[in-house]
Design a binder for these strands. Structure first.
Length: 295
DNA sequence: ACCTCGACCTGGGCGC
DNA sequence: TGCGCCCAGGTCGAGG
Protein backbone atom coordinates (compact mmCIF):
# COMPACT_ATOMS: atom_id res chain seq x y z
CA UNK A 1 0.00 0.00 0.00
CA UNK A 2 2.00 2.93 -1.22
CA UNK A 3 1.47 5.82 1.16
CA UNK A 4 3.11 9.23 1.03
CA UNK A 5 6.70 8.04 1.68
CA UNK A 6 6.53 5.34 -0.99
CA UNK A 7 5.04 7.75 -3.52
CA UNK A 8 7.68 10.36 -2.72
CA UNK A 9 10.38 7.72 -3.12
CA UNK A 10 8.97 6.84 -6.53
CA UNK A 11 8.80 10.52 -7.44
CA UNK A 12 12.44 11.02 -6.53
CA UNK A 13 13.37 8.08 -8.70
CA UNK A 14 11.49 9.39 -11.73
CA UNK A 15 12.20 13.12 -11.41
CA UNK A 16 15.81 12.89 -12.69
CA UNK A 17 14.84 10.49 -15.50
CA UNK A 18 11.62 11.59 -17.17
CA UNK A 19 11.84 15.36 -17.84
CA UNK A 20 13.25 16.00 -21.30
CA UNK A 21 12.31 12.61 -22.70
CA UNK A 22 9.70 12.36 -25.44
CA UNK A 23 6.90 9.80 -25.70
CA UNK A 24 6.90 7.63 -28.79
CA UNK A 25 4.32 4.96 -27.94
CA UNK A 26 1.79 4.17 -25.22
CA UNK A 27 0.36 0.71 -24.61
CA UNK A 28 -2.56 0.11 -22.25
CA UNK A 29 -3.78 -3.45 -21.79
CA UNK A 30 -6.39 -2.68 -19.08
CA UNK A 31 -8.53 0.25 -20.22
CA UNK A 32 -10.26 0.45 -16.82
CA UNK A 33 -7.04 1.75 -15.30
CA UNK A 34 -7.24 4.93 -17.38
CA UNK A 35 -9.65 7.82 -16.90
CA UNK A 36 -9.02 10.32 -19.67
CA UNK A 37 -10.35 13.89 -19.70
CA UNK A 38 -8.44 14.90 -22.82
CA UNK A 39 -9.98 15.06 -26.28
CA UNK A 40 -7.97 12.18 -27.64
CA UNK A 41 -7.57 8.79 -25.95
CA UNK A 42 -4.48 8.62 -23.76
CA UNK A 43 -2.48 6.48 -26.18
CA UNK A 44 -2.79 9.13 -28.89
CA UNK A 45 -2.84 12.21 -26.71
CA UNK A 46 0.58 11.58 -25.17
CA UNK A 47 2.36 10.89 -28.46
CA UNK A 48 5.17 13.34 -29.17
CA UNK A 49 4.85 15.10 -25.83
CA UNK A 50 7.91 15.75 -23.67
CA UNK A 51 7.85 15.30 -19.90
CA UNK A 52 8.19 18.56 -17.94
CA UNK A 53 8.09 17.59 -14.27
CA UNK A 54 7.11 14.92 -11.77
CA UNK A 55 5.31 16.21 -8.70
CA UNK A 56 3.43 14.70 -5.78
CA UNK A 57 0.47 15.66 -3.65
CA UNK A 58 -0.41 13.24 -0.87
CA UNK A 59 -0.37 9.80 -2.45
CA UNK A 60 -0.92 11.17 -5.96
CA UNK A 61 1.94 11.37 -8.43
CA UNK A 62 1.55 14.20 -10.95
CA UNK A 63 3.33 13.73 -14.27
CA UNK A 64 3.32 16.96 -16.29
CA UNK A 65 3.85 16.89 -20.02
CA UNK A 66 3.63 19.78 -22.47
CA UNK A 67 -0.13 19.76 -22.95
CA UNK A 68 -1.31 17.04 -20.58
CA UNK A 69 -0.91 16.20 -16.90
CA UNK A 70 -1.41 12.67 -15.70
CA UNK A 71 -2.42 11.96 -12.11
CA UNK A 72 -1.11 8.55 -11.13
CA UNK A 73 -2.90 6.98 -8.19
CA UNK A 74 -1.10 3.82 -7.18
CA UNK A 75 -3.97 2.29 -5.21
CA UNK A 76 -2.91 -0.78 -3.28
CA UNK A 77 -0.24 -2.33 -5.44
CA UNK A 78 0.70 0.20 -8.10
CA UNK A 79 4.35 0.57 -9.10
CA UNK A 80 5.82 3.07 -11.51
CA UNK A 81 9.35 2.44 -12.71
CA UNK A 82 11.74 3.74 -15.32
CA UNK A 83 13.36 1.14 -17.53
CA UNK A 84 16.50 1.44 -19.62
CA UNK A 85 16.86 -1.65 -21.84
CA UNK A 86 20.62 -1.16 -21.80
CA UNK A 87 20.64 -1.86 -18.06
CA UNK A 88 19.88 -5.23 -16.44
CA UNK A 89 16.33 -6.01 -15.32
CA UNK A 90 15.71 -7.36 -11.83
CA UNK A 91 15.33 -11.15 -11.88
CA UNK A 92 12.61 -10.92 -9.26
CA UNK A 93 10.92 -8.36 -7.07
CA UNK A 94 11.88 -7.93 -3.45
CA UNK A 95 8.77 -8.33 -1.30
CA UNK A 96 8.33 -6.50 1.98
CA UNK A 97 7.66 -9.15 4.66
CA UNK A 98 5.00 -7.09 6.43
CA UNK A 99 3.29 -4.98 3.81
CA UNK A 100 3.73 -7.26 0.80
CA UNK A 101 4.89 -4.30 -1.28
CA UNK A 102 7.05 -5.34 -4.19
CA UNK A 103 9.99 -3.37 -5.46
CA UNK A 104 12.62 -3.58 -8.17
CA UNK A 105 15.01 -0.96 -9.55
CA UNK A 106 13.76 -1.83 -13.02
CA UNK A 107 11.92 -4.80 -14.45
CA UNK A 108 10.80 -6.21 -17.77
CA UNK A 109 7.06 -5.83 -18.47
CA UNK A 110 5.21 -8.88 -17.13
CA UNK A 111 1.58 -9.97 -16.81
CA UNK A 112 0.94 -7.31 -14.15
CA UNK A 113 2.45 -4.48 -16.19
CA UNK A 114 -0.61 -2.79 -17.66
CA UNK A 115 0.68 0.50 -19.02
CA UNK A 116 3.96 0.92 -20.90
CA UNK A 117 5.10 4.33 -22.10
CA UNK A 118 7.95 4.05 -24.58
CA UNK A 119 10.25 6.99 -25.23
CA UNK A 120 12.01 8.08 -28.41
CA UNK A 121 15.40 7.04 -26.97
CA UNK A 122 14.26 3.48 -26.26
CA UNK A 123 13.74 3.90 -22.52
CA UNK A 124 10.29 3.46 -21.04
CA UNK A 125 8.07 4.08 -18.03
CA UNK A 126 6.25 0.99 -16.75
CA UNK A 127 3.09 0.94 -14.66
CA UNK A 128 2.60 -2.36 -12.83
CA UNK A 129 -0.41 -3.01 -10.60
CA UNK A 130 -1.29 -6.47 -9.28
CA UNK A 131 -4.70 -5.67 -7.76
CA UNK A 132 -5.53 -2.93 -10.23
CA UNK A 133 -6.93 -0.48 -7.71
CA UNK A 134 -4.73 2.24 -9.17
CA UNK A 135 -5.74 4.77 -11.85
CA UNK A 136 -4.12 7.04 -14.42
CA UNK A 137 -6.25 10.16 -14.66
CA UNK A 138 -5.34 12.48 -17.52
CA UNK A 139 -6.25 16.18 -17.80
CA UNK A 140 -5.37 18.95 -20.19
CA UNK A 141 -2.51 20.63 -18.39
CA UNK A 142 -4.32 23.92 -17.83
CA UNK A 143 -7.13 22.06 -16.03
CA UNK A 144 -5.12 19.83 -13.72
CA UNK A 145 -4.92 22.27 -10.82
CA UNK A 146 -8.73 22.23 -10.74
CA UNK A 147 -8.95 18.44 -10.84
CA UNK A 148 -11.32 17.20 -8.13
CA UNK A 149 -8.76 14.56 -7.18
CA UNK A 150 -6.41 17.39 -6.11
CA UNK A 151 -8.91 20.01 -4.93
CA UNK A 152 -10.43 17.51 -2.51
CA UNK A 153 -7.19 16.91 -0.66
CA UNK A 154 -6.37 18.24 2.79
CA UNK A 155 -2.91 19.58 3.61
CA UNK A 156 0.12 17.49 2.66
CA UNK A 157 1.97 16.83 5.92
CA UNK A 158 5.38 16.88 4.24
CA UNK A 159 4.89 19.67 1.69
CA UNK A 160 2.75 21.89 3.93
CA UNK A 161 3.59 20.98 7.55
CA UNK A 162 3.04 24.57 8.64
CA UNK A 163 -0.70 24.33 7.82
CA UNK A 164 -1.21 21.08 9.61
CA UNK A 165 -1.50 22.18 13.23
CA UNK A 166 -4.05 24.89 12.60
CA UNK A 167 -6.01 22.70 10.21
CA UNK A 168 -6.26 19.74 12.58
CA UNK A 169 -7.07 22.00 15.54
CA UNK A 170 -9.92 23.45 13.49
CA UNK A 171 -11.29 20.27 11.89
CA UNK A 172 -10.88 17.41 14.36
CA UNK A 173 -13.15 18.95 17.03
CA UNK A 174 -15.94 18.98 14.40
CA UNK A 175 -16.05 15.24 13.82
CA UNK A 176 -17.49 12.32 15.72
CA UNK A 177 -15.49 9.87 13.63
CA UNK A 178 -12.78 7.80 15.25
CA UNK A 179 -9.41 9.54 14.92
CA UNK A 180 -8.17 6.48 13.02
CA UNK A 181 -10.92 6.92 10.41
CA UNK A 182 -10.47 10.69 10.23
CA UNK A 183 -6.72 10.43 9.55
CA UNK A 184 -7.40 8.02 6.68
CA UNK A 185 -9.65 10.67 5.09
CA UNK A 186 -7.60 12.34 2.37
CA UNK A 187 -9.83 15.41 2.60
CA UNK A 188 -8.65 16.02 6.16
CA UNK A 189 -4.96 15.24 5.66
CA UNK A 190 -3.52 13.65 2.55
CA UNK A 191 -0.90 10.96 2.27
CA UNK A 192 -1.67 8.65 5.16
CA UNK A 193 -2.85 5.06 4.75
CA UNK A 194 -3.44 2.26 7.19
CA UNK A 195 0.21 1.75 8.07
CA UNK A 196 1.16 5.30 8.98
CA UNK A 197 -2.10 6.07 10.74
CA UNK A 198 -1.52 3.17 13.13
CA UNK A 199 2.11 4.21 13.56
CA UNK A 200 1.16 7.85 14.21
CA UNK A 201 -1.49 6.98 16.81
CA UNK A 202 0.96 4.68 18.58
CA UNK A 203 3.67 7.33 18.45
CA UNK A 204 1.30 9.88 20.02
CA UNK A 205 -0.20 7.37 22.49
CA UNK A 206 -3.74 7.92 21.27
CA UNK A 207 -6.44 5.24 21.40
CA UNK A 208 -7.50 4.76 17.75
CA UNK A 209 -11.26 4.72 18.39
CA UNK A 210 -11.26 8.07 20.18
CA UNK A 211 -13.77 10.36 18.44
CA UNK A 212 -12.02 13.30 16.81
CA UNK A 213 -13.91 15.80 18.92
CA UNK A 214 -12.78 14.12 22.16
CA UNK A 215 -9.10 14.68 21.50
CA UNK A 216 -7.57 17.41 23.62
CA UNK A 217 -5.38 20.18 22.25
CA UNK A 218 -2.16 18.49 23.35
CA UNK A 219 -3.07 15.31 21.49
CA UNK A 220 -3.89 17.17 18.29
CA UNK A 221 -0.68 19.15 18.52
CA UNK A 222 1.24 15.95 19.11
CA UNK A 223 -0.21 14.49 15.89
CA UNK A 224 0.56 17.64 13.92
CA UNK A 225 4.17 17.45 15.06
CA UNK A 226 4.68 13.70 14.91
CA UNK A 227 3.13 12.87 11.52
CA UNK A 228 5.53 14.97 9.40
CA UNK A 229 8.56 13.62 11.25
CA UNK A 230 7.30 10.04 10.92
CA UNK A 231 6.82 10.44 7.16
CA UNK A 232 10.13 12.25 6.68
CA UNK A 233 11.96 9.45 8.47
CA UNK A 234 10.25 6.92 6.20
CA UNK A 235 11.20 8.95 3.12
CA UNK A 236 14.80 9.09 4.32
CA UNK A 237 14.49 5.32 4.54
CA UNK A 238 13.26 5.18 0.93
CA UNK A 239 9.69 4.24 1.77
CA UNK A 240 8.26 1.76 4.21
CA UNK A 241 11.31 0.36 5.85
CA UNK A 242 12.60 -1.47 2.80
CA UNK A 243 16.03 -1.05 4.27
CA UNK A 244 14.85 -2.78 7.43
CA UNK A 245 14.58 -6.24 5.94
CA UNK A 246 17.31 -7.59 8.12
CA UNK A 247 15.87 -6.11 11.29
CA UNK A 248 12.38 -7.40 10.69
CA UNK A 249 13.63 -10.94 10.24
CA UNK A 250 13.76 -12.26 13.76
CA UNK A 251 15.31 -9.49 15.78
CA UNK A 252 12.76 -7.38 17.63
CA UNK A 253 13.71 -4.46 15.42
CA UNK A 254 14.56 -1.66 17.73
CA UNK A 255 15.40 0.40 14.72
CA UNK A 256 13.49 3.64 15.17
CA UNK A 257 12.46 3.56 11.56
CA UNK A 258 10.86 0.11 11.58
CA UNK A 259 7.14 -0.37 12.01
CA UNK A 260 6.17 -0.30 15.67
CA UNK A 261 2.61 -1.65 15.48
CA UNK A 262 1.40 -2.22 11.92
CA UNK A 263 1.27 -5.93 11.15
CA UNK A 264 2.42 -6.83 14.69
CA UNK A 265 -0.90 -7.94 16.20
CA UNK A 266 -0.32 -10.46 19.02
CA UNK A 267 3.35 -9.53 19.38
CA UNK A 268 4.94 -7.57 22.21
CA UNK A 269 4.92 -3.79 22.22
CA UNK A 270 8.50 -2.57 21.72
CA UNK A 271 7.84 0.21 24.21
CA UNK A 272 6.13 -1.55 27.14
CA UNK A 273 6.04 -5.26 26.36
CA UNK A 274 2.24 -5.55 26.40
CA UNK A 275 0.61 -7.76 23.78
CA UNK A 276 -0.58 -5.62 20.86
CA UNK A 277 -4.32 -5.81 20.16
CA UNK A 278 -6.39 -5.49 17.03
CA UNK A 279 -9.74 -3.94 16.23
CA UNK A 280 -11.61 -2.87 13.12
CA UNK A 281 -12.31 0.80 12.45
CA UNK A 282 -13.73 2.15 9.24
CA UNK A 283 -13.49 -1.38 7.89
CA UNK A 284 -9.73 -1.35 8.43
CA UNK A 285 -7.65 -3.54 10.69
CA UNK A 286 -6.15 -1.41 13.43
CA UNK A 287 -3.29 -2.55 15.65
CA UNK A 288 -2.68 -0.77 18.93
CA UNK A 289 -1.09 -1.15 22.34
CA UNK A 290 -3.61 -1.38 25.21
CA UNK A 291 -1.04 -0.03 27.66
CA UNK A 292 0.55 2.82 25.67
CA UNK A 293 -2.69 3.88 23.98
CA UNK A 294 -5.06 3.60 26.93
CA UNK A 295 -8.70 4.48 26.29
C1' DA B 1 -24.40 17.22 6.06
C1' DC B 2 -22.26 13.67 7.95
C1' DC B 3 -21.20 8.98 8.48
C1' DT B 4 -20.88 3.79 7.49
C1' DC B 5 -20.37 0.02 4.60
C1' DG B 6 -19.87 -2.89 0.53
C1' DA B 7 -17.77 -3.38 -4.09
C1' DC B 8 -13.89 -3.38 -6.73
C1' DC B 9 -9.44 -6.72 -7.47
C1' DT B 10 -5.68 -10.45 -7.00
C1' DG B 11 -2.38 -13.31 -4.57
C1' DG B 12 -1.11 -15.61 -0.53
C1' DG B 13 -2.06 -18.33 3.48
C1' DC B 14 -4.68 -21.72 5.69
C1' DG B 15 -7.82 -25.66 6.54
C1' DC B 16 -9.63 -29.85 4.91
C1' DT C 1 -1.82 -32.09 -4.32
C1' DG C 2 -5.42 -29.13 -4.71
C1' DC C 3 -9.42 -26.70 -3.94
C1' DG C 4 -12.14 -23.16 -1.72
C1' DC C 5 -12.37 -19.64 1.55
C1' DC C 6 -10.90 -15.48 3.60
C1' DC C 7 -8.00 -11.55 4.19
C1' DA C 8 -5.26 -7.42 2.82
C1' DG C 9 -6.82 -2.10 1.75
C1' DG C 10 -7.57 3.04 -1.23
C1' DT C 11 -11.41 4.96 -3.06
C1' DC C 12 -16.07 5.69 -4.32
C1' DG C 13 -20.94 5.35 -4.54
C1' DA C 14 -25.09 3.82 -2.25
C1' DG C 15 -27.71 3.94 1.64
C1' DG C 16 -28.68 5.32 6.59
Amino acid sequence: MPELPEVETIRRGLAPKLPGRTIARVTVDRPKLVVCHTTLPLEEDLLGQTYQSVRRRGKILIVDLERTSVLVRLGMTGQMTFRDPALPDAAKFSVHPVTGLQRAPQHAPDKHTHIVVEHSDGTMACYRDIRMFGRWIAYPREQVEDAPELLGLGPDPVAQPECLREHLLRELPKTTRAIKVALLDQALICGLGNIYVDEALFGCRIYPATPGRELNKDQIEALAQFIPSLLERAIANRGTTFSDYRDSEGNPGHNQDSLQVYGRYGQECYRCGSTLERLTLGGRTTTWCPQCQAQ
